[in-house]
Design a protein around this nucleic acid. Structure first.
Lengths: 159, 159
DNA sequence: TTCCGTGCAAATGGTTTGCAATCAT
DNA sequence: ATGATTGCAAACCATTTGCACGGAA
């Protein structure tokens, strides 16, 4: 299922520990090992993967990095509010998060309602449409997420 | 082209009691007053409005139509699986439902993350993009929902 | 030293489910 | 009559929160 889309030339605009530290300080908050661990996890796995809070917790445990589940939740919310992570609303599971990047204002999902298989794709047309709608109502666009519900070839066959 | 519906007589695109009855019978299920009431509520309010399970329950109570909350949940799931309702995933509140119609393959939402105000808009460009993506991966498109996260004029001002 | 952040456990709130009674067919 | 459906309440589960301790600044 690897979409070959994630071609090269990705200039890391992703905050590392130092960037994260100053961002937090600007808000009167602190850099903690837990926060570093959560962000580092997302950086490690790259932009393509969506994780639930539970999955983040499990992966950290597996990596010998102890972070309580409650803190995972708090940190996911924090990093999202800072714009470092993006929250997704996929039809299937509950809340999921992925690393935010500039590319993500224009990064969409197609989910098979039969088996849950998810493909990602990009489309500037969608972003353009979102901006048009925002302008029309005087809104300031933050990001737009298109979720295409569909049947994958295998599931389409069975129905 | 999902939901081919009734061939021949093109009367109501929206199944009324009779249509609902036969659809249910095809699945070995029954037409009950509760199911009629829930569907009728959505038909009454039209396509534009999204209701949570709790809101459906409240509205039915207000209309003197007693349906337990548990049954509301069961019925919403049932009607969605039949394609009569469409489940939305708006960032703000939990699950919401609205009447499904062909128009909804191209019917999108812009949500203010500050106050929850929601505007709807249409864009054929989005549907086109979704179809392109579906074709690319061999998927069969069911519908596509674009959620634009944004700040409404009022909330934008305060930040 | 100051308080922000963490871990734990308890609380929460939306959604689901077991079961006996009820109703559509 | 038969089995699907309902209502109720208890069960569930993901997420949030109160509180005391520990650690960044």
């Amino acid at each position: 299922m690897p979409a070959p889309s994630n071609a090269g030339t990705v200039v890391a605009a992703v905050p590392t520990s130092e960037g994260l530290r100053s961002s937090l300080h600007d808000r009167g908050q602190r850099l903690t090992p837990q926060r570093q661990r959560v962000l580092a996890l997302f950086e490690r796995i790259g932009e393509g993967t969506h994780l639930s809070a539970e999955e983040v917790h499990q992966r950290l445990l597996r990596a010998q990095e102890r972070v309580s589940l409650a803190t995972v939740y708090r940190t996911l919310r924090l990093l999202s509010s800072m714009g470092l992570l993006q929250e997704l609303e996929l039809p299937e599971g509950g809340r999921r998060f992925e690393l935010a990047g500039d590319a993500h204002r224009d990064h969409h999902h197609m989910v098979c309602v039969g088996c849950g298989r998810t493909e990602e794709f990009e489309s500037t047309a969608v972003l353009t449409a979102g901006e048009a709608a925002a302008g029309l109502h005087g809104f300031r666009l933050l990001d737009c997420v298109l979720t295409v519900r569909a049947l994958c070839p295998r599931c389409a066959e069975r129905s």
